[in-house]
């Protein structure tokens, strides 16, 4: 094992970590907002909205992310109208094309996860909120959404992990995130195993931290699903005294 080389590779790749994280975080954040909108369309009961969301989800879940990235980065630039539109400064930038593709893709999956969460909210609790005189928006904000998020979080963490890994596809359109830098390094050194092992380890580390983070948030959000905390020593002592 050539440890000095591994160490050097690690230093080179870790420099690209911020870009990988930025890609994932931006795509997940915007994707979540879009997904919430799509999920609401799906359960709105308004047929055109429902169909639009169904079609969207079908297309973005059913086709490869790589194809979507190619279509957005190379495909859209073919149209004169796009090149002359106000969005061209975004669509000619590979970084934003990657973010858009990842965001549109994750939104399709997340929409179904959020929809599941929303449908799991017990009807009685919604009814209790309405019977207190809450407006539909307040019911959604105070009762439905918090309960849905708690329900959807475990499944959503899967999708977040997928997104972290999917950022590696952005290397295909010249983005120098971790995988992009790794590929470049291999073309320079021809040492594929070492470089990809280190790259793989970096993704593992990101996802380890991510899963712990989600687990922590889940823990904080669900005290009602745990047994009540046993009496603390101080309380017990107080009662004895």
């Amino acid at each position: 094992m050539d440890f000095p080389f591994l160490y050097e590779t690690f230093l080179t790749l870790i420099a690209a970590l911020p870009l990988t994280l930025q890609l994932a975080a931006t795509a997940i954040a915007f994707g979540a907002i879009l997904a919430l909108g799509l999920a609401l369309c799906r359960i709105s009961g308004i047929l055109p909205l429902d169909w639009f969301a169904r079609l969207y989800i079908f297309i973005f879940r059913g086709s490869p992310l790589l194809v979507q990235i190619f279509l957005i980065y190379y495909g859209l630039g073919q149209f004169r109208e796009v090149r002359h539109s106000m969005f061209w400064f975004i669509l000619r930038d590979p970084y934003w094309c990657a973010v858009i593709a990842l965001m549109l893709n994750t939104a399709a999956y997340a929409a179904e996860i959020i929809r599941g969460g929303l449908l799991s909210v017990p009807h009685g609790q919604v009814e209790a909120a309405r019977s207190c005189g809450m407006s539909p928006f307040m019911v959604f904000r105070r009762i439905t959404l918090p309960l849905a998020v708690r329900q959807a979080l475990p499944a959503y963490s899967n999708e977040m992990i997928s997104m972290v890994k999917a950022t590696s596809l952005a290397s295909i359109i010249t983005i120098m995130e971790v995988t992009g830098v790794a590929a470049k390094l291999i073309s320079e050194t021809f040492r594929a195993i070492e470089v990809f092992v280190v790259a793989g380890f970096i993704y593992l580390a990101i996802n380890f931290v991510l899963t712990r983070l989600v687990a922590f948030v889940e823990y904080r959000l669900s005290p009602h699903m745990r047994q009540p905390a046993p009496l603390s020593a101080a309380t017990v002592a107080g009662e004895i005294r």
Binding site: E127, P146, L147
Partner: peptide, 15 residues
């Protein structure tokens, strides 16, 4: 908001 409703299945907000 002027009528207090009590349900058969309590419907307390679980969170």
């Amino acid at each position: 908001s002027e009528l207090g409703m009590v349900f058969q299945s309590f419907n307390l907000w679980s969170h």
